[in-house]
Design a protein around this nucleic acid. Structure first.
Lengths: 202, 202
DNA sequence: TGTCAACTGGACTCGCGGTACACTTAGGAG
DNA sequence: CTCCTAAGTGTACCGCGAGTCCAGTTGACA
């Protein structure tokens, strides 16, 4: 990685944790620059404004989450041939992963920005939308595969079922942050897991 | 209501919709005052700073939500004696109520502030915490009553089940905002409803 | 007539985002 | 050895919004 890429990546690390801790607006460029041990001018050399920082942050966050989901559910599939059981294993792995974070999950960059909408340009908003739609597609696909092996007896909205994974994670994170209780998200995921089991196995 | 209370309430109305539309930091006192047709000084006559505005906003929001839940589940209980069916009816009523909002639910003030934590003092954070804990207690109590009539065959974390109502609403709202799709929350609530049904009726 | 509640208006300080631009410094190419 | 470029630094400046201070106004009511 070039020096430029290293600094940029360092800025993004610092920005992400600061933004999740106190919000985007409350995080000053001054403090990001100081933490990265560069000057304010140095910051503007890498990002023309805060919007560009936000966009880069979100892009990186989505890539990381996608990679995490890929690894996790690939691993789950290696552990069990049946798509339903692979999903149940994947959700358990996800819950464990979240439990292993000592101070709880830091929060979701997307949720953080959706509640500060107008600060960001249309590009940032579209990025968020595409990320959520991507996860819907991913999980909907998995649930459809499951439904082939384990026919659903209850009629359900499959798009909404796909969304439910993101929704439970996002909702759990809001509660976890508000409560300051570290295992809140993982408990919610375990309930989702029970739901999936009941839905396809009865 | 006194003139003072009227103005205060007007300011809170304006502030709430602006904050949900674009975030707390992005909402200036200037614009709130202008919309309320008072001066900046007038605003500071009612609230000593933005923190006090946030606190009042959240307090009012929690009161309103509590009242909404009370009305809704009382009504549901009038419609059915069995606590499980009352819960299912209540969730359906909640979903319908959310669907009837033309532009989707405006979002949750609590979620909005939890993602902008450090801006607010400890009092505001504690207020958020107590609200979520209050809802946990409310729904946990309802689920325990249900479990007496319909014994659970699956072992579940009852605190987390109580939290699940708030979690599904919060998560759904994040997705609804990010996607711009109005019926997202209500679909998620319908999935929660299916889960409750499967959990207690099999 | 005086008092008080609910304001208005203006001046000021600070911190932050953002712009502009001249200058520096380390490392590689010629 | 020199020149060039990438990756910065430092300084000055603008405008905006939060928050403070304070003197003055206006309408209702005792």
């Amino acid at each position: 990685m070039s020096a430029k890429q290293e600094t940029k990546s360092l800025i993004l690390d610092i920005a992400e944790s600061a933004v999740l801790a106190k919000g985007f607006e409350a995080t000053s460029i001054e403090e990001i620059a100081a933490a990265a041990e560069i000057s304010r001018s140095g910051f503007f050399y890498h990002f023309k404004d805060k919007n560009e920082l936000a966009r880069a942050m979100i892009e990186r966050y989505i890539e990381n989450e996608d990679k995490l989901y890929n690894d996790l559910f690939d691993r789950a599939r290696q552990l069990h041939d049946d798509p339903l059981h692979a999903m149940l294993i994947g959700l358990k792995l996800l819950a464990e992963l979240l439990d292993d974070m000592p101070n709880g999950h830091p929060g979701c960059v997307i949720a953080s920005t959706t509640y500060q909408d107008r600060l960001f340009d249309a590009g940032v908003r579209e990025l968020n939308r595409q990320a959520i739609l991507g996860w819907r597609k991913r999980f909907r696909g998995m649930f459809e595969e499951i439904a082939e092996a384990h026919p659903l007896r209850v009629e359900v909205n499959m798009d909404a079922l796909g969304d439910m994974v993101s929704s439970v994670v996002e909702g759990g994170l809001v509660l976890e942050r508000a409560l300051g209780e570290p295992r809140t998200v993982s408990s919610q995921i375990m309930h989702l897991r029970t739901y999936i089991r009941l839905l396809f196995l009865g």
